[in-house]
Design a protein around this nucleic acid. Structure first.
Length: 951
RNA sequence: UGGGGUAUGGCUUAGUGGUAAAGCUCUCGGCUGAUAACCGAGCGAUCGCGGGUUCAAUUCCCGCUACCCCAACCA
């Protein structure tokens, strides 16, 4: 019974079969895949049993405060991509995630949550208990977020800086530094935050726009001139004042000198009308006379001049305190860019002032208390707040003394406490310091031995370390690791040595740092000091949190037996001044080497317009919403972690990394394209078993061998991209491979082979052989980035691979014999020709002459003899049913022309290609046109090819 | 204020001293045996702005602008 009903042969075609879903359905599917990984304990298994060397990225600890933002996601996903790549390459990856727990922000949050009366009753230990709970809760929440990103790590055993073992190791780092003489106690001006009542590190400051200071020009009466100037300046005696300028009038009580630049020229000027001061003459830098006259609204007539160095040892009187001080020589920091060229110097309130004061043996006067209130030493100003009423009071007093020249609002950058957002002051207090000077050379040498990626990182951190001053490591807060020091009650001398440190370290190792506040002094002291006739109290300072995280190379990398130095530190570029530096300094101080072999940095996330993300701009992207979707699922669909991860791979993170809705949508499309390509491959392998059906390389058609060559090119490129941490190259290459090489070219051609041939035909099996290679390697290659998709694909492979997870399958597998550059040359030409043919086919299609390209016959004239010969070989009646022009062009017939003349008669054509209607009728099964359709009595609707395949 | 970095079509990335490349997006068309998929074609960039060097500059030099990061003792 002949089949004459069109469509009857649909069931005889080998269509793709797979249960692998076209849609990612990531919100639901990803957690299932993660559960599978957990259940298989894959990370633990591979980290333990992989054959290669250990590989350690040492995690920079995020602060256990608040929820994760997209910057956290960028950082941790980058680490995970590298770790997974190394796992696939067979390395024993050991990734211990960390959290930074101590510090003011958490302490403030705890305090803010309390009622006033509760605050009153709170002891240090009370704050600590609450802060620890807060940090632990935050860690739990952040850990769940990181896990949802698909990040692999030893999540059950993270490092947390409040862990007793961590704290004890940190005490060990401190102790070794102390015993090497790198830790000292000093009275120095430090950044002091009255609002937090603590000293701050440079890394804890910010310089917001728009700070306005109440600046003041003032004059101090000159008393005695230096010997060199007695003669020349005598005429001005008794009527001369030195003009100074300050943006912080409240520091006048601390004034102990006026500094000049030895190499500048200074002039005595006579003040004209409207003189606001009681001085007829003022001393000012020559270059600033005009500026000052303008500000004063008067004339200043130069009467005499001198070099700055001759001014040294002139004396003047502080008008507010009746104190006599000297003019001294400062340094190059004194310029004529602003002010008067004579610098008010208060060694207790400024870094330069302190240094120059040391040279002249000046005392350190800092009549300000912890809260920023003037002390008794400030005489009439006692009780005033330096950031509020002290400035106007000083200015008023100066005015009354006839010393005020001018008061002026001055806008400049001024340091603020980055947590309380309040201004800080410079104030001398007793603090503990790490002497960077003691190991600076070693640090610089260590820096030069580290691999910095990108290389500019070295240029960045080198001057920071070369120029930084000693590191103030003490803080006057409760939530931190104590500085393990005792003070003699009678003499106030500190007590600290190897014995006290070891004793305290042992206690903390067992009971945690709370013991410092909970145990008696006697218990905390080692035996030999308990009854030595003195009585001691504990120090209440805690350590700078940068010392906490900076010690992690010891408390984590070394303590857990990971490879030290670590293979890689990977953080945002801001950490050049933060963690990279604090880790380096402590490590060099103790061990003499850097804690890392390489440092990789990434930029900051910005929005799609390149602007910084900020809540007030409303351009913040929340990673949780990217994954699970927002309230409005239309506008903010849940893309899953893979799209977030794909984003990380797609951008050049050495720069700013943009992210926004539009990008996410496009990235989702890319993920979809990769997924669907994989789905097609899976579907067409449903009846394929590589063990029995694979075709030997030597038996493969040339097209397939070309494709295998192309696969070596693609995956070489991808491998190189991972090796060089240039993941955007992976992204571009994989996308291009899926779209251009597979979908548009090889797979489009493959359909005829896969669907139409007999199931076991060589032209079908050879194609499947290539598909399986492509699919398995695609899964491996995307696994570090699109981890969930890769695993999803692997689980749907229709044949046994011998491993349960893609992550156990190793990195991409390429056979050396596949590399055939000559094939690439030839097939690149053929693909170009195919592109030309498509353009002409499109002409015919637009004109409605054809719909499907199979409705046409392609006429082709090629001038190039070599190529023409190639094409002739590919257009024989006895071809291998693969390397044939009709299949390359997806037309039913191809006719090679001896010359271009016949093309002239055709309606749709180019110089060398023309389109005609295909000969014969459409075969109901393969949809190709053929003159053989209708010749079979049994299958009148089929062409000869299909008749054979069906029969 | 100083230092560093970046600036190529709507998006992400290539690239070169000689009239700019890929993928995605978008538009139009086809297919209906990858179908909320697939195929084809097309639109689309004065390579941030202004100078200079050169026969020729997106690519080299200078200046400017914008954005990002860092630094800073402006007493």
């Amino acid at each position: 019974m002949p089949l004459t009903e069109p469509g009857s042969y649909k069931n005889s075609v080998n269509l793709p079969q797979t249960k692998f879903d076209m849609r990612a359905n990531a919100v639901k599917r990803e957690p299932e895949i993660q559960a599978f990984w957990n259940q298989q304990a894959l990370y633990e298994k591979l980290a333990g049993s992989n054959p290669g060397e250990p590989f350690v990225i040492h995690d920079g600890p995020p602060y256990a405060n608040g929820s994760l933002h997209v910057g956290h996601a960028l950082n941790k996903i980058l680490k995970d991509i590298i770790n997974k790549y190394q796992l696939l390459r067979g390395r024993k990856v050991q990734f211990v995630p960390g959290w930074d727990c101590h510090g003011l922000p958490i302490e403030l949050k705890v305090l803010q949550s309390l009622k006033p009366e509760e605050k009153q009753a709170l002891t240090p230990i009370g704050i600590r208990k609450k802060a620890a709970v807060f940090a632990a809760d935050t860690i739990d929440a952040q850990r769940e977020s990181f896990k949802r990103y698909g990040v692999w790590a030893d999540w059950e055993h993270p490092y947390v800086t409040m862990d007793p073992a961590y704290e004890a190791a940190q005490i060990g780092v401190f102790g070794e530094m102390f015993l090497k003489g790198y830790i000292y106690r000093g009275l120095k001006p430090v950044y002091w935050s009255p609002s937090s009542r603590t000293a701050l590190a440079e890394a804890e400051l910010e310089y917001p726009e728009g700070h306005t200071s109440n600046s003041m020009y003032a004059a101090f009466e000159v008393l005695n001139l230096s010997p060199e100037l007695v003669g020349p300046f005598d005429p001005f005696s008794g009527e001369l004042g030195v003009a100074i300028w300050t943006t912080t009038p409240w520091t006048i009580p601390g004034n102990l000198a006026v500094a000049v630049n030895a190499d500048l020229v200074y002039s005595v000027v006579e003040v004209g009308e409207n003189n606001p001061t009681r001085f007829k003459y003022l001393l000012v830098a020559k270059d600033l006379i005009e500026t000052l006259a303008e500000k004063m609204g008067t004339t200043l007539e130069s009467k005499a001049s001198t070099m700055g160095k001759l001014l040294e040892h002139c004396t003047y009187r502080n008008p507010l305190f009746d104190r006599t001080s000297e003019i001294i020589i400062g340094g190059d920091y004194i310029t004529t860019e602003a002010g008067t060229g004579l610098v008010h110097t208060a060694p207790g309130h400024g870094q330069e002032d302190y240094l120059v004061g040391q040279r002249y043996g000046l005392p350190i006067l800092s009549p300000v208390d912890d809260g920023g209130i003037m002390t008794e030493e400030a005489g009439p100003f006692a009780g005033l707040n330096v950031l509020k009423d002290a400035n106007p009071a000083v200015i008023a007093a100066m005015k009354e003394a006839g010393s005020l020249i001018k008061e002026e609002a001055y806008q400049h950058k001024y340091p603020y406490d980055w947590r309380t957002k309040k201004p800080v002051i410079f104030r001398a207090t007793r603090q503990w310091f790490a002497s960077v000077a003691g190991f600076r050379d070693g640090a610089l040498k260590a820096i030069s031995e580290v691999t910095w990626i990108p290389a500019q990182g070295e240029n960045r951190i080198t001057p920071m370390v070369a120029e930084r001053s000693d590191w103030c490591i003490s803080r006057q807060r409760s939530w931190g690791l104590p500085i393990p020091v005792f003070y003699n009650e009678a003499t106030h001398e500190p007590l600290i040595d190897a014995d006290t440190i070891n004793h305290v370290q042992a206690i903390i190792a067992e009971q945690g740092a709370d013991a410092w506040w909970e145990m008696s002094v006697a218990e905390l002291l080692p035996e030999k000091y308990r009854n030595d006739g003195n009585s001691y109290r504990i120090g209440t300072d805690t350590m700078d949190v940068w010392f906490d995280s900076g010690s992690s190379w010891a408390s984590v990398v070394k303590a857990r037996g990971l490879s030290y130095p670590a293979d890689l530190y990977l953080e945002g570029s801001d950490q050049h001044r933060g963690w990279f530096q604090s880790s380096l300094l402590t490590s060099v101080a103790v061990t003499g080497q850097a804690p890392y072999k390489a440092v990789l940095t990434h930029g900051f996330t910005v929005d799609e317009n390149g602007r910084k993300m900020s809540k007030s701009e409303g351009n913040v992207v929340d990673p949780a919403i990217v994954i699970n979707g927002g309230k409005n699922q239309q506008q903010e669909p849940g893309y899953g972690a893979d799209v977030l991860r794909l984003w990380v791979s797609s951008v050049d993170y050495s720069n700013d990394v943009p992210l926004g809705r539009n990008m996410l949508k496009q990235l989702n499309d890319v993920r979809g394209k990769i997924r669907n390509t994989a789905r097609f491959l899976l579907g067409n392998l449903h009846d394929y078993n590589p063990a029995t059906d694979a075709v030997a390389y030597s038996d493969l058609p040339e097209l397939d061998r070309y494709m295998l060559h192309r696969i070596t090119e693609v995956f070489d490129e991808v491998t190189d991209a991972f090796e060089k941490y240039q993941f955007f190259r992976f992204f571009q290459t994989i996308q291009n491979f899926c779209v251009v090489d597979l979908s548009n070219f090889y797979l489009d051609i493959a359909k005829d082979r896969l669907y139409i041939s007999r199931a076991n035909a060589t032209r079908r099996r050879s194609c499947q052989t290539v598909l399986a290679v492509a699919l398995e390697n695609l899964s491996r290659a995307i696994a570090p980035v699109l981890s969930h998709l890769a695993e999803d694909i692997w689980q749907f492979l229709p044949y046994s691979t011998g491993v349960t997870s893609v992550f156990e399958s190793g990195w991409v597998k390429l056979d050396e014999q596949w590399r055939q550059p000559a094939l690439s040359d030839k097939w690149t030409k053929l693909r170009d020709l195919r592109g030309n043919a498509n353009q002409v086919l499109e002409q015919a299609r637009m004109a409605k002459m054809i719909g499907s390209s199979l409705e046409s016959k392609l006429l082709l004239y090629v001038e190039d003899a070599e190529l023409r010969s190639t094409l002739e070989q590919m257009n024989q009646a006895t071809g291998n049913q693969v390397d044939e022009l009709r299949y390359l062009f997806l037309t039913s017939q191809v006719e090679l022309l001896a010359d271009a003349a016949p093309l002239a008669e055709l309606e749709h054509k180019s110089e060398t290609i023309g389109i005609a209607k295909a000969d014969g009728c459409k075969c109901d099964r393969c949809w190709n046109y053929s003159t053989r359709v209708g010749l079979s009595t049994e299958h009148p609707l089929l062409c000869d090819r299909c008749e054979e395949a069906v029969g």
